[in-house]
Design a protein around this nucleic acid. Structure first.
Lengths: 351, 351
DNA sequence: CTCGATCCTGCAAACGATTGCGAGGCCGAC
DNA sequence: GTCGGCCTCGCAATCGTTTGCAGGATCGAG
């Protein structure tokens, strides 16, 4: 454990010299897979020498020879979106265990940037890619289809399952929200959907319809509105539009938490009591939504685990390129807080 | 612009062969600084060949020789802390402009991990380091002092100013908060301070005392409590302790937003009206605190700019290692929301 | 005692780029 | 006509590892 001075780099040659062996031998002794090729005693001597000198293999040199960079590209839309930090953290932690380093870029959902980023990652010789950008118009981000680079998809899944992916079960998640509202007694439930080009927006929309039908309710088309982005202002716009229709509606399933917040805006503006007059449930369980007024009932996704699993799948693929691409589906969880309650009867009393 | 098939990597040798020159010559032609060493016509031929083949220099091989990686290490405590994503995003964006890539690691404020991370970054040949870990017990993260690696400090500053740094003016920020409360009529103001080992905790504590004195008020020592971490539960604990003392107190300056939230907990529990009976101001302006109940008055820090400036300083230093280490001080800004109001007079009416 | 097999280890060639050095060609000056 | 200088370029070493190959030592079997 006595690290020598880390002043200047200690190279494999130094270790070899100290152990009295050839660098080649030292290399074999240090790498677990080739260690069996060298005498146990010698190996120990090398390991000891490495330890004493505080030797760290130079991944650059190693990568040059093995044409592996021990580096993984991570494409996300925007780190600033509270959805992604836990995912990224999961990726980082899992990758770190395997001595891989993630290179993280923000695409801002711009296809051009996405292309450029992928090109840049390729130039940097990444060994694989994790992409959490969720447009579903094309199967894969442009420039990846013909690329024989291990890729794992987050929040998106290929129809043919040709690439490993990890997604949360949005259908089921929305189902949880709907069932919760139904069990409270709601029947006139609206859905403010996210953009349908995004797989998440699409799945949640479908999930909503499905869950309503499963309960024997034919969802009123007037009660489902589709937005152009998963943002607060869209939630606000849609909510206003919904209320302007002056239909009976006692609960709203928002496409995500931000859109739910947009509803809050409208309620404040119009003096509507939530959850007294209308209930809202969000999606994602972003940090701090429990502190909102009212605390937001929402669907929690295992973000960290999503990231960790994605990284795990990529590592699997790196170890064995022929491996069957796994499709991981993670379970969402309903978090009941203060934005949902039983609907009022006509007379203003709880039904 | 006609990229050949990107199927397999094209190397410098390929380019050289196509241009009918030696790889060494091709290398010189490709690099802007050495281009003058080769005949203009030849250079053009090489450039053309490179373009046609879609040549991308292999940064790994280049790095091996030049021991430059065009890579920068970024040390943060925890990406999951909402403070950091905007900072990181600022770093990423600024670095990207200069074709540098950040390697981001989470230290979890663990000195051992910090050491290991720095060691790992060194092994990866990072050209520089940005560290946003803010313990102030030692001057620099362990293992950096003697290292001749360009470093810029975020949220921390060396006494001797030997390294460039960018920090927000915490003294002034707290001053803003105090002045705001004073102007509302508060006199009995408490401070729930963060850990004093962190420079931010320390500076804000000092800033509080200073600002009070500047207003001619000698701060009651009973009204300033010091916590062990910048977290909600500490805010809660401290707030309880404060109220248990049964002193007159009409406002609280929390060490950060999370601690302010801890106060909210206590208020709910004890049935205290905020801001009616007591005002609270936070620090950092985390995302969504405007949605809390009541919306949190807090001090906003230019997080994105902090990151961007830090990256800028590092780039400066990489371009010219002899450059004077700049010390950047950024301005905080008070954001008044709903958690502060004029204190009540004894009779329950606004004073 | 000899011979082949088995281990272990050293040697040297890669990987893909950069770069000091020197060789050759060309030109102008004397 | 010769020589010096400059421009351009090729040669080869190098960065730190990995890895195929082969040689030397050791050992057991015949």
């Amino acid at each position: 454990m006595a690290n020598a001075d880390p002043g200047d780099r200690v190279t494999l040659k130094d270790v070899a010299r100290r152990a009295g062996v050839h660098p080649g031998t030292a290399s074999r002794a240090l790498n677990a897979e080739t260690r069996e090729l060298v005498n146990g005693e010698t190996a120990e001597r090398v390991l000891a020498a490495a330890e004493e000198l505080g030797y760290r293999p130079n991944p650059i040199a190693r990568g040059l020879k093995t044409s592996r960079s021990y580096t993984v590209g991570v494409l996300i839309p925007d780190l600033t979106n509270p959805l992604f930090p836990p995912i990224v953290r999961g990726i980082q932690d899992r990758l770190e265990e395997a001595a891989y380093t993630p290179l993280i870029v923000n695409t801002d959902n711009d296809p051009d940037r996405e292309r450029a980023d992928i090109e840049a990652m390729r130039a940097r010789q990444v060994d694989g890619l994790i992409t959490a950008t969720a447009r579903r118009d094309q199967g894969l981000p442009a420039g990846l289809e013909r690329l024989s680079l291990p890729v794992v998809l987050v929040n998106r899944r290929l129809e043919d399952g040709a690439r490993p992916s990890v997604v949360a079960d949005d259908r089921k998640g929305i189902g949880l929200a709907v069932e919760h509202l139904l069990s409270l007694g709601h029947r006139r439930i609206a859905h403010l959907a996210g953009p349908q080009e995004l797989s998440t927006g699409h799945l949640r929309h479908d999930g909503f319809i499905e869950a309503m039908r499963a309960a024997g309710i034919d969802p009123d088309p007037e009660l489902v509105l589709v937005g152009t982005a998963f943002i607060e202002s869209e939630g606000e716009r849609l909510c206003n539009e919904l209320l302007d229709r002056e239909l009976e509606v006692t609960a709203i399933v928002a496409g995500n938490d931000l859109m739910a917040v947009g509803c809050y805006d409208v309620f404040v503006e119009r003096g509507i009591d939530c959850p007294g007059e209308i209930s809202v449930v969000g999606y994602n369980d972003m940090p701090f939504v429990g502190w909102f007024s009212p605390p937001l009932t929402t669907v929690h996704l295992p973000h960290y685990e999503i990231g960790a699993r994605a990284a795990g799948l990529l590592l699997d693929q790196l170890r064995d390129p022929e491996i069957e691409p796994a499709q991981v589906l993670l379970e969402p969880e309903l978090v009941v807080r203060g934005s949902t309650a039983a609907p009022l009867a006509r007379d203003g009393q709880p039904a």
